[in-house]
């Protein structure tokens, strides 16, 4: 044993080369923050209909190209009128989950909580709605990006606003926010968004869109994403938020009606080499 404690228990330099100390937090270097996501979730897709919002994600958490965790729920119900969908880094999603849990507890013990004995509508309307939640989350995301310590996520917030109308908005790692009749993050912005925009091109079209139409469009979008997004999976979660039904969360859906007939004709790689 020499008098360099840092070398104790480590491979010898003369045999294995110099030790890579870069992972030891360098006392002189800058404080390290997230530079890239590690375990990631892919697209979140959501669209409004006349009484509410449909939102879906698959249940996969990838480690690079590896389909690492196949039963990760990336939809999170906040209360009876807000559901969140997370794309991007899964550990940051779990951090936000804890943050929202503490917010939820704080809210439910505060003056905003509806008293147990009264169940009338005005009482319930004091708790955080989807719009409040989105504002809060966007502030968290913007603060973290401004600290150069981003939460590596793209988030969709789906639910009802203060007037009980459908609400759908996005927040991402830069703190950017926007709202539209249909939204999709990641790959879904390319593949799912055009499909959903055919159903709800604008706010006026939302009023003519039924729950069934919206749910079908979202499920179809999930199928197309599974076909073409290499980081996706055929088990997914879908939630429907509406004024009447509250939140209906289905967390273990199987993609149905797939058509792989075309695969027979594909030549050149895989098992059909020529």
């Amino acid at each position: 044993m020499n008098h360099f404690p840092q070398a104790w228990g480590r491979p010898r330099d003369d045999v294995y080369g110099a030790y890579d100390a870069s992972y030891l937090h360098d006392q002189n270097g800058p404080k390290a923050h997230t530079q890239s996501p590690i375990v990631t979730g892919t697209s979140v897709v959501a669209m409004k209909f006349k009484d509410g919002v449909v939102i879906a994600t698959d249940n996969l958490a990838s480690y690079g190209a590896l389909a690492r965790f196949t039963n990760v729920k990336r939809l999170r119900q906040f209360n009876t009128r807000a559901v969140l969908g997370f794309g991007g880094d899964v550990s940051d999603m779990q951090y936000l989950d804890r943050l929202l849990s503490s917010l939820s507890i704080r809210e439910n013990y505060s003056a905003y909580a509806s008293s147990a004995d009264s169940a009338d509508a005005t009482e319930a309307s004091a708790e955080l709605n989807a719009k409040n939640l989105h504002t809060y989350l966007s502030k968290v995301m913007y603060k973290r990006r401004s600290d150069f310590n981003p939460l590596w996520n793209a988030i969709l917030v789906a639910g009802l606003d203060g007037d009980g109308k459908p609400f759908l908005a996005s927040a991402d790692l830069l703190g950017s926010t926007f709202s539209a009749p249909s939204l999709a993050t990641g790959f879904g912005a390319h593949l799912a968004q055009p499909m959903m925009r055919r159903v709800v091109p604008n706010e006026a079209a939302v009023a003519n869109t039924t729950r069934e139409m919206a749910e079908k469009a979202v499920r179809d979008a999930m199928k197309v994403l599974f076909y073409r997004d290499a980081r996706s999976m055929d088990r997914y979660s879908i939630a429907i938020v509406s004024k009447e039904g509250g939140v209906e969360m289905m967390e273990d859906e199987q993609l149905e009606g797939q058509s792989w007939a075309f695969a027979d004709r594909i030549r050149g790689y895989g098992t059909q080499v020529n």
Binding site: G17, A18, Y19, D20, S22, A32, H33, T34, Q35, S36, Y63, G64, A65, L66, R145, F148, P150
Partner: peptide, 25 residues
């Protein structure tokens, strides 16, 4: 496979074995 962004840049000079990480954000 694992790294989708070219975050590692080989730093010049013989001293750094692993290279320096660039700000990826």
């Amino acid at each position: 496979s694992f790294r989708e962004t070219p975050a590692v840049r080989q730093a010049p000079g013989p001293s750094s074995a692993a290279g320096e990480r660039q700000h990826g954000f």
